[in-house]
């Protein structure tokens, strides 16, 4: 199977590989997938609590080249976006950008799950923090499996 140039580029020069402190209140962490299935993605975002803009995004992925490329691409895309904008990301955009074949679509689904799960984690932390000072706002955490 031949990979698209963009997959190869992200695979060979992955953007934003790394780890953020998951205990930090401004950091949201999404860990999705399972080793037995052959892919695990961990995507982390650091969000400005005032503006809700994603200031930093990092990933680590266990998976095939397309899984690595999908997560690398997502970290690039969400940086500078508000979390509401990031929440609107859909896997079909990843499929299109990376030109993924049908057998690799699950990689893009996983990347979408990962960013949504990271945002949910951040919102949960923020809600908990606000909960300490006042009544909690509407629980909007969308627990992407």
């Amino acid at each position: 199977m031949a990979y698209s140039k963009k997959v190869v580029d992200h695979y060979e020069n992955p953007r934003n590989v790394g780890t953020l402190d998951k205990e930090d209140e401004s950091v949201g962490t999404g860990l999705v997938g399972a080793p037995a299935c052959g892919d695990v993605m961990r995507l982390q975002i650091r969000v400005n609590p005032e503006t809700e803009v994603v200031e930093e995004a990092k990933f680590k992925t266990f998976g095939c080249g397309s899984a690595i490329a999908s997560s690398s691409l997502v970290t690039e895309w969400v940086k500078g976006k508000t979390i509401d904008e990031a929440m609107a990301l859909e896997n079909s955009q990843i499929v299109e950008e990376l030109n993924l074949p049908p057998v690799k679509i699950h990689c893009s689904v996983l990347a979408e799950d990962a960013i949504k799960s990271a945002i949910a984690d951040f919102r949960k932390k923020q809600a908990a923090r606000k909960g300490e000072t006042g009544p909690a706002e509407g629980e909007s955490a969308n627990s992407a499996e």
């Binding site: 080793p35 299935c37 266990f62």
Partner: peptide, 24 residues
């Protein structure tokens, strides 16, 4: 391995079999 979350967990001494994975 430097970009594998599993390797990082292994290095931190986390037993991967104790984690509840979200199989998809």
């Amino acid at each position: 391995r430097a970009m594998s979350p599993l390797y990082e967990m292994h290095k931190e001494g986390i037993d991967l079999s104790t984690i509840e994975w979200t199989a998809h």
